[in-house]
């Protein structure tokens, strides 16, 4: 299966990119869903998309540390302006959706589960 980029995800799942657009070409190799930052730091894998409900700037530090491909914030929450600025600086796309984490997880699973690398 061909590689999926953050941009592909955004188009297919109708996600709005609010920052870090320079990183939209990042390849997505998997998904990690957690709202405990130390859990993400401990267990997310490189090039994962991270789904969270946190909006504060610390999520960008975590994503940078783990070389994550993008951050998706669920439930219609909006990232802080410091978060958007940090995403721009680190070139990590931050995307938002009105859907709940559960709904988005289902969409992501349907889209990515057939990918061998997933």
């Amino acid at each position: 299966m061909e590689q999926i980029t953050v941009e592909n995800l955004a188009e297919k799942l109708n996600l709005e990119c609010l920052g870090g657009k320079a990183g939209l070409h990042h390849t997505v190799k998997g998904v990690y869903i957690s709202d405990l930052l130390s859990d993400v730091v401990g267990h997310a894998r490189e090039s994962d998309v991270w789904v969270t409900l946190h909006t504060h700037v610390n999520i960008v530090a975590v994503a940078t540390l783990k070389n994550l491909s993008a951050i998706i914030i669920t439930g219609g929450r909006v990232p802080d302006k410091e978060t958007i600025a940090a995403c721009d600086a680190q070139q990590i796309p931050v995307l938002v959706t009105q859907h709940s984490t559960f709904h988005l997880a289902g969409q992501l699973y349907r889209l990515l589960a057939s990918n061998e690398e997933f």
């Binding site: 709202d35 405990l36 930052l37 130390s38 946190h54 610390n58």
Partner: peptide, 14 residues
């Protein structure tokens, strides 16, 4: 903020 889950020191230890 999503911290304070009691995972920090065990992450270091691991």
């Amino acid at each position: 903020l999503g911290f304070g889950a009691g995972l920090g020191l065990s992450n270091i230890n691991n």
